[in-house]
Amino acid sequence: MQKQQQITSKLLFRHETILFIIMIVFGVVVNSINPAFLKVENLFDILKTSSITGMMALGVMVVMISSGMDISFTAIATVSMGVTVRMLIALDKGNIVVAFLVAGIIGALLGCINGFLVYRFKLPTLIVTLGTSSIFHGLLLSILKIPYLYTVPGYYSDFSRLSLFTFTTADGAVVGFSYLTVLLFVMACVVWLILRFTMVGRGIYAIGGSIEAAKRAGFNILFIQLFIYSFIGFVSGVASIEYVVMFRHVHPFNMMNMMNMMLNVIAAVVLGGTSINGGTGTVLGTLFGVWMIYMITNSLILMGIPSEWESVVIGFILILSIGVNAYQKSLRKVEVKIIES
């Protein structure tokens, strides 16, 4: 009896479950205002457009699990996007796979610098990445002088049109399941596998739980830190090419000018249940967090909300859903205490 109770209460208090319920409720409300919302077509589109944010969110989640914070990822993305696309054009060859790889590697290398600084000087990660973010972006713009690029090779846009499968809906629209979404899912699986089944993954959680204990247990902290920060660099690089694929241009500000974007990614990760203090976080929760935020921002027109009300509505829903989550968390604490005693 008691055990059963415990199990149900655990399920009820699982972060992902709560988030899922909020998403469903929100979806149903929007759908009742405009039935276009819950159409497969719209859902697939949300999956596709959210894939860039989702990709970066995975990286941010990994960093946050290790109780760090990286705010240089948008700068890294901008740099790897600019350098990669330029370089491949200059070399006059390359294809989409190479682009993804090159951007990923450039991102990973830049991330390594973060990781090294964090490890070597034991500096707060926020400071390091705040610093390197202006260094990276500043160097890109002033030394490499990457200008705007509005025409990119065809393989980028070709990839954007590729779909894993397509079908025709009742009202005749052709709906495709984009490869960008597939890429996000693949990356999510990879992260899940790494976190769950490898020693590096355990090391990331261990550092987040207690870096001192991790050191004593014999984890190679340098390696793990380098892995964490080059991983977020890598996914930022990949995300930057996704950006080129979707929007067919290279822009030194759009990705970077996104202080909003950066904060949105961090908000999504935290909303997804990753603790700011490190140690906890799940892939599923992070994806839910990203989708939740995307659902909010991408249903305002459907709901017919005037533009000047947008910020109010987003702010309000954000506070509401985060508030519900925070409240539920404090409930869990009480619950644990009672079970314990």
Binding site: A36, E41, T49, F247, N257, I301, L302
Partner: peptide, 24 residues
């Protein structure tokens, strides 16, 4: 069709909002 939309001067926002407008 509706009050003016805001793009934030960003391609991706214009893209997303146009998509949504098409559906709406």
């Amino acid at each position: 069709l509706r009050d003016r939309l805001v793009s934030d001067e960003r391609t991706e926002v214009a893209y997303e909002k146009t998509m949504e407008a098409i559906k709406t």
